Simulated assay, not measured.
Amino acid sequence: MPRFDNQTVLVTGGTGGQGASHVRALHAEGANVVIGAVDAERGAGLAAELGGAARFVHLDVSQEESWVAAIAETERAFGALTVLVNNAGVQNPPALIESTQRATWARILDINLTGTFLGIKTAAPALRRAGGGAIVNIASTMGIGGTACYAPYVASKWAVRGLTRTAALELGRDNIRVNAIHPGVVATPFITEPAAGSDTPIADFYSPEPFAIPRLGQPADITALLLFLISPHAAFITGAEYVIDGGLLLGPALPKEAA
């Protein structure tokens, strides 16, 4: 029997590299999947590809009224919401702090941080109505260490850590678990293509050669951890943070010739 029969999952940023991976895997495991995104063409196309247990909803995560409408449509379509995956995020074009525009700072925090806050705020009552569930916030290894030239993104992901822990404390007695995943460098357009207003992708700042596992991550690596965290196997886990980065944060690996 599929792991997530009778579960309904809302995935924000559901048309991106990681988001679409999560959506497809959840659907394959029997979940009703709601694809929240601003790209209607890609979102509707993915929902059509997956079939009746998938829906696309237009969702601008920085706008509370958009969240309210998305949650209402989710409950209308499937009766209950049991899982929220706060996956939507954007990166800033690389720039020193002194050269970063205030508008850039505001946009990154609006989507990455305020979007996560609004997701928790509006989904919590729906999860409570369902008798409980899970929230997983997709953060970043940049939320654990500093990264030059990415101050808005780094600040947003550091803040998601505190938000995750606070939500876990507030919602635990309602049988709602809240955890965070910190992906490292994952081979998606988010990493391999430049952000708007930039000529330099984040991948140019990293080489996997010194990682303990010397490759870029794949979306499926993150999806596998996500599926565990929303499953009954993680029923006693809340307020936790999981780094999945191939050893990026560990420091340089021992060269083979030195082993």
Rank of each mutant, 00 (worst) to 15 (best):
E170I: 07
L127P: 02
L50V: 15
D60N: 03
A80T: 06
G115D: 07
A130M: 11
A44V: 13
G246T: 07
H27A: 14
N92T: 05
P201D: 15
I191V: 13
I237Y: 06
P219L: 06
T74C: 08
A195T: 07
A253M: 06
A220P: 07
E73Y: 13
V160M: 09
A148R: 08
L118C: 10
A47R: 11
Y206R: 12
G143T: 00
E241V: 12
R161L: 12
L226K: 12
T12K: 03
A95W: 10
G30Y: 11
I35V: 11
R55Q: 10
A123P: 06
H182S: 05
L46V: 12
P93K: 11
H233N: 14
T15Y: 06
V83I: 10
T122F: 10
G246K: 05
L254A: 04
I222L: 05
G145C: 15
A196Y: 09
D5R: 15
R42T: 03
R76I: 10
I176T: 01
R165S: 06
S207I: 04
R107T: 05
A259G: 11
P93M: 11
R177Y: 09
N32E: 12
T100E: 06
A40Q: 15
H27Y: 14
L59P: 00
P210N: 12
K157Y: 04
T223M: 14
E75S: 02
T74A: 07
A28G: 15
V186N: 03
A195S: 11
A259D: 08
P93G: 09
T100M: 09
A103D: 13
A126Y: 12
V90T: 06
S62A: 14
S62Y: 14
P219F: 03
A224Q: 13
D204M: 05
A69M: 10
D60H: 01
A95E: 13
V83G: 00
Y150P: 03
N112M: 06
L127N: 05
A88R: 07
P219N: 05
I97T: 13
V186W: 03
L10W: 08
P208C: 11
G145I: 14
A103Y: 08
R215C: 03
E257W: 01
I71V: 15
L96Q: 11
T223L: 15
A80P: 01
P152W: 04
D245C: 00
F117Y: 10
I176Y: 00
F4R: 02
A235S: 15
F117D: 02
L254H: 01
L59G: 02
G146F: 01
N137E: 00
L254Q: 05
P94S: 02
